[in-house]
Amino acid sequence: MSSVRIGVIGVGNMGASHAKELLAGHIQGATLGAVCDGMTSKREWAREALPTVPVFETSEAMLQSGLVDAVIVATPHYDHPEQALRALEAGKHVLVEKPAGVFTAKVREVNEAAAQSNLVFSMMYNQRTNPVYLKLRDMIAAGELGEIRRTNWIITDWYRSQAYYDSASWRATWAGEGGGVLINQCPHQLDLWQWTIGMMPVRMRAFCGFGSRRNIETEDQVTAYVEYPNGGTGVFITTTGEAAGTNRFEVSGDKGKVVIENDTLTFWRLEESESAFNLRNAEPFGQPAYTKLEVPIEGKNPQHVGIIQNFADAINHGTPLVAPGDEGINGLLISNAMHLSTWLNDWVELPFDESQYEAELRKRAASSSFKPGEPEQASAPVDLKGTH
Protein backbone atom coordinates (compact mmCIF):
# COMPACT_ATOMS: atom_id res chain seq x y z
CA MET A 1 0.00 0.00 0.00
CA SER A 2 1.27 3.49 -0.84
CA SER A 3 1.84 5.83 2.07
CA VAL A 4 1.59 9.61 2.02
CA ARG A 5 3.92 11.56 4.30
CA ILE A 6 1.95 14.29 6.07
CA GLY A 7 3.54 17.30 7.72
CA VAL A 8 1.69 19.31 10.37
CA ILE A 9 2.04 23.08 10.27
CA GLY A 10 1.41 24.35 13.80
CA VAL A 11 1.40 22.05 16.84
CA GLY A 12 -1.00 23.85 19.11
CA ASN A 13 -3.96 21.88 20.48
CA MET A 14 -5.40 20.71 17.17
CA GLY A 15 -2.12 20.29 15.31
CA ALA A 16 -0.66 18.29 18.18
CA SER A 17 -3.70 16.03 18.23
CA HIS A 18 -3.44 15.37 14.49
CA ALA A 19 0.30 14.69 14.75
CA LYS A 20 -0.24 12.16 17.53
CA GLU A 21 -2.95 10.35 15.57
CA LEU A 22 -0.65 10.06 12.57
CA LEU A 23 2.33 8.96 14.65
CA ALA A 24 0.21 6.32 16.37
CA GLY A 25 -0.61 4.78 12.99
CA HIS A 26 -4.33 5.53 13.17
CA ILE A 27 -4.43 6.70 9.54
CA GLN A 28 -4.02 3.91 7.00
CA GLY A 29 -1.77 4.83 4.11
CA ALA A 30 -0.30 7.86 5.87
CA THR A 31 2.62 8.64 8.16
CA LEU A 32 3.76 11.69 10.09
CA GLY A 33 6.62 13.11 8.03
CA ALA A 34 7.50 16.23 10.05
CA VAL A 35 6.04 19.08 12.10
CA CYS A 36 6.81 22.78 12.31
CA ASP A 37 5.95 25.66 14.61
CA GLY A 38 7.30 29.19 14.99
CA MET A 39 7.08 29.10 18.78
CA THR A 40 10.07 27.76 20.68
CA SER A 41 7.92 26.19 23.39
CA LYS A 42 5.86 24.27 20.83
CA ARG A 43 8.99 22.95 19.11
CA GLU A 44 10.35 21.85 22.49
CA TRP A 45 7.08 20.04 23.19
CA ALA A 46 7.21 18.35 19.78
CA ARG A 47 10.78 17.11 20.27
CA GLU A 48 9.78 15.56 23.59
CA ALA A 49 6.35 14.18 22.61
CA LEU A 50 7.27 13.18 19.03
CA PRO A 51 10.92 12.13 19.47
CA THR A 52 11.25 10.32 16.12
CA VAL A 53 9.77 13.16 14.05
CA PRO A 54 11.78 15.96 12.40
CA VAL A 55 10.84 19.38 13.83
CA PHE A 56 11.19 22.63 11.87
CA GLU A 57 10.79 26.27 12.83
CA THR A 58 9.20 27.37 9.56
CA SER A 59 6.84 25.80 7.08
CA GLU A 60 9.16 26.89 4.25
CA ALA A 61 11.95 24.73 5.68
CA MET A 62 9.64 21.77 6.16
CA LEU A 63 8.19 22.07 2.65
CA GLN A 64 11.67 22.18 1.14
CA SER A 65 12.97 19.29 3.24
CA GLY A 66 11.69 16.55 0.95
CA LEU A 67 10.12 14.85 3.98
CA VAL A 68 6.44 15.60 3.29
CA ASP A 69 3.99 15.03 0.44
CA ALA A 70 1.05 16.76 2.09
CA VAL A 71 0.32 19.09 5.01
CA ILE A 72 -2.29 19.78 7.61
CA VAL A 73 -2.54 23.52 8.34
CA ALA A 74 -3.31 24.07 12.03
CA THR A 75 -1.97 27.57 12.62
CA PRO A 76 -3.84 30.65 13.94
CA HIS A 77 -6.82 31.58 11.76
CA TYR A 78 -5.26 34.49 9.87
CA ASP A 79 -2.41 32.24 8.70
CA HIS A 80 -4.58 29.46 7.21
CA PRO A 81 -4.76 30.90 3.66
CA GLU A 82 -1.09 31.90 3.51
CA GLN A 83 0.10 28.51 4.70
CA ALA A 84 -2.25 26.73 2.30
CA LEU A 85 -1.02 28.83 -0.64
CA ARG A 86 2.61 28.20 0.29
CA ALA A 87 2.04 24.46 0.43
CA LEU A 88 0.15 24.38 -2.86
CA GLU A 89 2.92 26.36 -4.56
CA ALA A 90 5.38 23.77 -3.22
CA GLY A 91 3.33 21.00 -4.83
CA LYS A 92 1.91 19.59 -1.59
CA HIS A 93 -1.60 18.34 -0.94
CA VAL A 94 -3.40 20.46 1.69
CA LEU A 95 -5.87 19.87 4.52
CA VAL A 96 -6.86 23.06 6.34
CA GLU A 97 -8.22 23.23 9.88
CA LYS A 98 -11.40 25.25 10.31
CA PRO A 99 -11.99 28.04 9.57
CA ALA A 100 -10.72 28.36 6.02
CA GLY A 101 -9.53 31.84 6.94
CA VAL A 102 -10.80 35.04 8.50
CA PHE A 103 -12.11 36.89 5.44
CA THR A 104 -13.35 35.45 2.19
CA ALA A 105 -11.23 37.45 -0.27
CA LYS A 106 -8.07 35.68 0.90
CA VAL A 107 -9.74 32.27 1.00
CA ARG A 108 -10.87 32.79 -2.60
CA GLU A 109 -7.19 33.07 -3.60
CA VAL A 110 -6.54 29.63 -2.10
CA ASN A 111 -9.54 28.14 -3.89
CA GLU A 112 -8.33 29.49 -7.21
CA ALA A 113 -4.79 28.19 -6.66
CA ALA A 114 -6.08 24.75 -5.68
CA ALA A 115 -8.38 24.60 -8.69
CA GLN A 116 -5.41 25.23 -11.00
CA SER A 117 -3.37 22.44 -9.41
CA ASN A 118 -3.70 18.68 -9.55
CA LEU A 119 -3.45 18.51 -5.77
CA VAL A 120 -5.92 17.31 -3.15
CA PHE A 121 -7.38 20.20 -1.15
CA SER A 122 -9.62 19.47 1.82
CA MET A 123 -11.14 21.13 4.91
CA MET A 124 -11.22 19.77 8.45
CA TYR A 125 -15.02 19.79 8.61
CA ASN A 126 -15.11 16.76 10.87
CA GLN A 127 -18.79 17.22 11.75
CA ARG A 128 -19.60 16.12 8.19
CA THR A 129 -18.67 12.59 9.33
CA ASN A 130 -21.42 12.64 11.99
CA PRO A 131 -24.03 10.14 10.76
CA VAL A 132 -26.92 12.19 12.15
CA TYR A 133 -26.08 15.13 9.84
CA LEU A 134 -25.29 12.80 6.97
CA LYS A 135 -28.75 11.29 7.41
CA LEU A 136 -30.41 14.71 7.34
CA ARG A 137 -28.50 15.68 4.20
CA ASP A 138 -29.50 12.42 2.51
CA MET A 139 -33.16 12.86 3.49
CA ILE A 140 -33.27 16.39 2.09
CA ALA A 141 -31.46 15.40 -1.11
CA ALA A 142 -33.93 12.53 -1.59
CA GLY A 143 -36.86 14.95 -1.28
CA GLU A 144 -38.27 13.45 1.94
CA LEU A 145 -38.87 16.92 3.40
CA GLY A 146 -39.94 18.49 0.13
CA GLU A 147 -39.05 22.12 -0.49
CA ILE A 148 -37.23 23.61 2.52
CA ARG A 149 -39.25 26.40 4.05
CA ARG A 150 -37.55 27.19 7.36
CA THR A 151 -34.39 26.40 9.31
CA ASN A 152 -33.66 27.18 12.96
CA TRP A 153 -30.40 26.42 14.73
CA ILE A 154 -29.98 27.24 18.40
CA ILE A 155 -26.38 26.43 19.29
CA THR A 156 -25.72 27.88 22.74
CA ASP A 157 -23.77 25.07 24.41
CA TRP A 158 -20.39 26.69 23.67
CA TYR A 159 -20.02 27.97 27.23
CA ARG A 160 -16.75 29.82 27.76
CA SER A 161 -15.90 31.61 31.00
CA GLN A 162 -13.82 34.77 31.31
CA ALA A 163 -10.95 32.54 32.46
CA TYR A 164 -10.98 30.86 29.05
CA TYR A 165 -10.61 34.19 27.26
CA ASP A 166 -7.97 35.37 29.72
CA SER A 167 -5.87 32.23 29.11
CA ALA A 168 -4.28 33.71 25.96
CA SER A 169 -4.03 37.31 24.76
CA TRP A 170 -5.04 36.44 21.18
CA ARG A 171 -8.38 34.90 22.12
CA ALA A 172 -11.47 36.73 20.91
CA THR A 173 -9.49 39.67 19.48
CA TRP A 174 -9.88 41.14 16.01
CA ALA A 175 -6.13 41.02 15.35
CA GLY A 176 -5.57 37.60 16.90
CA GLU A 177 -8.60 35.55 15.83
CA GLY A 178 -10.57 37.81 13.52
CA GLY A 179 -13.80 37.11 15.38
CA GLY A 180 -15.34 35.38 18.36
CA VAL A 181 -17.94 32.64 18.59
CA LEU A 182 -18.60 32.71 14.82
CA ILE A 183 -14.97 32.18 13.81
CA ASN A 184 -13.83 29.97 16.69
CA GLN A 185 -16.68 27.80 17.96
CA CYS A 186 -19.32 27.86 15.20
CA PRO A 187 -17.60 27.18 11.84
CA HIS A 188 -18.82 23.57 11.92
CA GLN A 189 -22.46 24.56 12.43
CA LEU A 190 -22.27 27.32 9.82
CA ASP A 191 -20.92 24.74 7.37
CA LEU A 192 -23.54 22.12 8.26
CA TRP A 193 -26.34 24.70 8.12
CA GLN A 194 -25.88 25.20 4.37
CA TRP A 195 -24.37 21.79 3.54
CA THR A 196 -27.28 19.71 4.87
CA ILE A 197 -30.02 21.73 3.17
CA GLY A 198 -28.08 22.24 -0.06
CA MET A 199 -28.37 26.01 -0.40
CA MET A 200 -26.86 29.25 0.80
CA PRO A 201 -28.81 32.26 2.03
CA VAL A 202 -29.17 35.21 -0.33
CA ARG A 203 -29.92 37.92 2.26
CA MET A 204 -29.54 38.35 6.00
CA ARG A 205 -29.92 40.68 8.96
CA ALA A 206 -27.73 39.88 11.92
CA PHE A 207 -27.27 41.25 15.43
CA CYS A 208 -23.92 40.47 17.06
CA GLY A 209 -23.17 41.38 20.65
CA PHE A 210 -19.49 42.33 20.88
CA GLY A 211 -18.21 41.75 24.40
CA SER A 212 -21.79 41.72 25.65
CA ARG A 213 -21.31 38.97 28.26
CA ARG A 214 -17.52 38.74 28.48
CA ASN A 215 -14.67 41.23 28.54
CA ILE A 216 -13.60 40.59 24.94
CA GLU A 217 -13.41 42.55 21.67
CA THR A 218 -15.36 40.21 19.43
CA GLU A 219 -18.85 38.71 19.31
CA ASP A 220 -19.97 36.48 22.17
CA GLN A 221 -23.59 36.26 21.08
CA VAL A 222 -25.36 36.35 17.71
CA THR A 223 -28.90 36.25 16.41
CA ALA A 224 -29.28 36.22 12.63
CA TYR A 225 -32.22 35.97 10.24
CA VAL A 226 -31.61 34.74 6.69
CA GLU A 227 -33.61 34.36 3.49
CA TYR A 228 -33.09 31.62 0.92
CA PRO A 229 -33.42 31.79 -2.87
CA ASN A 230 -36.64 29.73 -2.79
CA GLY A 231 -38.33 32.13 -0.35
CA GLY A 232 -37.57 30.06 2.73
CA THR A 233 -36.19 31.63 5.90
CA GLY A 234 -33.80 30.69 8.68
CA VAL A 235 -32.62 31.78 12.12
CA PHE A 236 -29.23 31.12 13.71
CA ILE A 237 -28.66 31.81 17.40
CA THR A 238 -25.41 31.29 19.26
CA THR A 239 -23.50 32.47 22.33
CA THR A 240 -20.65 31.48 24.63
CA GLY A 241 -22.25 32.99 27.72
CA GLU A 242 -25.34 30.86 28.30
CA ALA A 243 -25.76 27.96 30.75
CA ALA A 244 -27.29 25.49 30.36
CA GLY A 245 -26.87 25.56 26.62
CA THR A 246 -28.90 24.08 23.78
CA ASN A 247 -27.94 22.47 20.48
CA ARG A 248 -31.13 22.10 18.43
CA PHE A 249 -31.30 22.13 14.63
CA GLU A 250 -34.78 22.24 13.11
CA VAL A 251 -35.57 22.01 9.40
CA SER A 252 -39.14 22.36 8.14
CA GLY A 253 -40.22 21.51 4.62
CA ASP A 254 -43.38 21.04 2.58
CA LYS A 255 -43.50 17.34 3.50
CA GLY A 256 -42.53 17.44 7.15
CA LYS A 257 -40.10 18.58 9.82
CA VAL A 258 -36.83 17.25 11.24
CA VAL A 259 -35.32 18.12 14.62
CA ILE A 260 -31.80 17.09 15.59
CA GLU A 261 -31.10 17.34 19.31
CA ASN A 262 -29.06 15.21 21.69
CA ASP A 263 -27.72 13.19 18.73
CA THR A 264 -31.27 12.09 17.89
CA LEU A 265 -33.07 12.75 14.62
CA THR A 266 -36.84 13.06 14.90
CA PHE A 267 -38.96 13.27 11.74
CA TRP A 268 -42.56 14.49 11.66
CA ARG A 269 -43.56 13.07 8.26
CA LEU A 270 -46.73 14.50 6.73
CA GLU A 271 -49.13 12.02 5.14
CA GLU A 272 -49.44 14.48 2.26
CA SER A 273 -47.54 17.65 1.54
CA GLU A 274 -48.69 20.80 3.29
CA SER A 275 -49.28 22.53 -0.04
CA ALA A 276 -51.47 19.65 -1.34
CA PHE A 277 -53.42 19.51 1.91
CA ASN A 278 -53.99 23.26 1.86
CA LEU A 279 -55.39 23.11 -1.68
CA ARG A 280 -58.05 20.54 -0.84
CA ASN A 281 -58.81 21.37 2.81
CA ALA A 282 -62.18 23.05 3.51
CA GLU A 283 -62.10 22.92 7.34
CA PRO A 284 -61.17 26.23 9.02
CA PHE A 285 -58.99 24.49 11.62
CA GLY A 286 -57.97 21.46 9.59
CA GLN A 287 -54.34 20.34 9.82
CA PRO A 288 -52.27 17.85 7.86
CA ALA A 289 -51.92 14.42 9.48
CA TYR A 290 -48.41 13.25 10.29
CA THR A 291 -46.42 10.41 11.76
CA LYS A 292 -43.69 11.10 14.30
CA LEU A 293 -40.63 8.91 13.73
CA GLU A 294 -37.38 8.45 15.62
CA VAL A 295 -35.09 7.84 12.66
CA PRO A 296 -32.41 5.20 13.35
CA ILE A 297 -28.89 6.50 12.82
CA GLU A 298 -26.33 4.03 11.56
CA GLY A 299 -22.61 4.33 11.08
CA LYS A 300 -19.59 5.47 13.04
CA ASN A 301 -18.57 9.05 13.72
CA PRO A 302 -14.79 9.15 13.09
CA GLN A 303 -14.53 12.94 13.34
CA HIS A 304 -10.98 14.32 12.81
CA VAL A 305 -9.45 10.91 12.16
CA GLY A 306 -12.13 10.27 9.56
CA ILE A 307 -11.32 13.47 7.67
CA ILE A 308 -7.57 12.79 7.75
CA GLN A 309 -8.21 9.22 6.56
CA ASN A 310 -10.39 10.55 3.74
CA PHE A 311 -7.64 13.06 2.85
CA ALA A 312 -5.06 10.26 2.64
CA ASP A 313 -7.44 8.05 0.65
CA ALA A 314 -8.09 10.87 -1.81
CA ILE A 315 -4.34 11.26 -2.38
CA ASN A 316 -3.60 7.53 -2.59
CA HIS A 317 -6.70 6.21 -4.32
CA GLY A 318 -8.70 9.16 -5.70
CA THR A 319 -11.47 8.72 -3.12
CA PRO A 320 -14.02 11.59 -3.24
CA LEU A 321 -13.51 14.13 -0.46
CA VAL A 322 -16.00 14.42 2.38
CA ALA A 323 -15.13 18.12 2.75
CA PRO A 324 -13.62 19.60 -0.42
CA GLY A 325 -11.40 22.56 0.40
CA ASP A 326 -13.23 24.99 -1.88
CA GLU A 327 -16.38 24.54 0.23
CA GLY A 328 -14.63 26.08 3.25
CA ILE A 329 -15.58 29.52 1.96
CA ASN A 330 -19.33 28.93 2.34
CA GLY A 331 -19.56 29.01 6.14
CA LEU A 332 -17.09 31.92 6.21
CA LEU A 333 -19.29 33.87 3.79
CA ILE A 334 -22.13 33.47 6.26
CA SER A 335 -20.13 34.55 9.32
CA ASN A 336 -18.56 37.49 7.45
CA ALA A 337 -22.03 38.60 6.37
CA MET A 338 -23.23 38.41 9.99
CA HIS A 339 -20.39 40.67 11.11
CA LEU A 340 -20.94 43.08 8.22
CA SER A 341 -24.69 43.30 8.79
CA THR A 342 -24.08 44.22 12.43
CA TRP A 343 -21.33 46.72 11.65
CA LEU A 344 -23.46 48.45 9.00
CA ASN A 345 -26.67 48.06 11.01
CA ASP A 346 -28.39 46.97 7.82
CA TRP A 347 -29.35 44.06 5.58
CA VAL A 348 -26.56 42.35 3.67
CA GLU A 349 -27.08 40.52 0.40
CA LEU A 350 -24.91 37.55 -0.52
CA PRO A 351 -22.57 37.81 -2.32
CA PHE A 352 -21.50 41.00 -0.55
CA ASP A 353 -18.65 43.45 -1.16
CA GLU A 354 -15.69 41.46 0.15
CA SER A 355 -13.35 44.46 0.01
CA GLN A 356 -15.75 46.38 2.26
CA TYR A 357 -15.73 43.54 4.78
CA GLU A 358 -11.94 43.36 4.77
CA ALA A 359 -11.67 47.12 5.28
CA GLU A 360 -14.09 47.05 8.22
CA LEU A 361 -12.23 44.12 9.77
CA ARG A 362 -8.83 45.77 9.39
CA LYS A 363 -10.12 48.93 11.10
CA ARG A 364 -11.01 46.86 14.14
CA ALA A 365 -7.81 44.83 14.01
CA ALA A 366 -5.76 48.05 13.96
CA SER A 367 -7.12 49.07 17.37
CA SER A 368 -7.08 45.53 18.80
CA SER A 369 -5.50 44.85 22.18
CA PHE A 370 -3.55 41.98 20.64
CA LYS A 371 -0.44 42.93 18.71
CA PRO A 372 0.75 40.17 16.36
CA GLY A 373 4.44 39.42 16.77
CA GLU A 374 4.55 40.07 20.50
CA PRO A 375 5.83 37.14 22.61
CA GLU A 376 3.01 34.84 23.62
CA GLN A 377 3.22 32.47 26.55
CA ALA A 378 2.17 29.02 25.40
CA SER A 379 1.38 25.91 27.35
CA ALA A 380 1.85 22.41 26.08
CA PRO A 381 -0.99 21.12 23.88
CA VAL A 382 -3.85 19.58 25.80
CA ASP A 383 -5.87 16.45 25.17
CA LEU A 384 -8.92 17.54 23.18
CA LYS A 385 -10.88 14.29 23.29
CA GLY A 386 -14.47 14.90 24.26
CA THR A 387 -14.35 18.66 23.59
CA HIS A 388 -16.08 20.68 20.89
Score class of each variant (00 low, 15 high):
residue 2 S to A: 13
residue 6 I to S: 00
residue 8 V to H: 00
residue 14 M to T: 14
residue 16 A to M: 03
residue 18 H to V: 14
residue 26 H to C: 13
residue 27 I to H: 04
residue 30 A to F: 04
residue 34 A to H: 03
residue 39 M to C: 09
residue 40 T to R: 14
residue 50 L to H: 00
residue 51 P to V: 13
residue 72 I to V: 13
residue 73 V to Y: 00
residue 77 H to S: 13
residue 83 Q to I: 12
residue 86 R to G: 07
residue 91 G to C: 07
residue 93 H to G: 04
residue 96 V to Q: 09
residue 97 E to C: 14
residue 102 V to Y: 05
residue 102 V to L: 06
residue 117 S to P: 06
residue 118 N to Q: 11
residue 120 V to A: 03
residue 126 N to Y: 13
residue 132 V to H: 11
residue 137 R to T: 10
residue 138 D to S: 13
residue 142 A to R: 11
residue 149 R to I: 08
residue 149 R to D: 10
residue 152 N to R: 13
residue 152 N to A: 07
residue 154 I to Q: 14
residue 154 I to N: 15
residue 154 I to D: 12
residue 158 W to A: 08
residue 161 S to L: 09
residue 162 Q to F: 09
residue 163 A to M: 12
residue 167 S to G: 06
residue 176 G to Y: 01
residue 177 E to M: 14
residue 183 I to E: 08
residue 185 Q to S: 14
residue 187 P to D: 05
residue 195 W to F: 09
residue 198 G to C: 05
residue 208 C to H: 02
residue 218 T to F: 00
residue 219 E to K: 04
residue 222 V to D: 02
residue 240 T to A: 11
residue 243 A to M: 12
residue 253 G to A: 07
residue 259 V to G: 03
residue 261 E to M: 09
residue 262 N to A: 14
residue 263 D to E: 14
residue 264 T to C: 12
residue 267 F to W: 14
residue 269 R to H: 10
residue 277 F to I: 03
residue 282 A to G: 05
residue 296 P to E: 06
residue 299 G to L: 08
residue 301 N to G: 06
residue 310 N to S: 02
residue 312 A to P: 04
residue 314 A to K: 05
residue 321 L to Y: 03
residue 329 I to G: 09
residue 330 N to T: 04
residue 342 T to I: 10
residue 344 L to C: 11
residue 349 E to A: 14
residue 352 F to T: 08
residue 362 R to G: 02
residue 367 S to C: 12
residue 373 G to F: 09
residue 378 A to H: 10
residue 387 T to P: 07
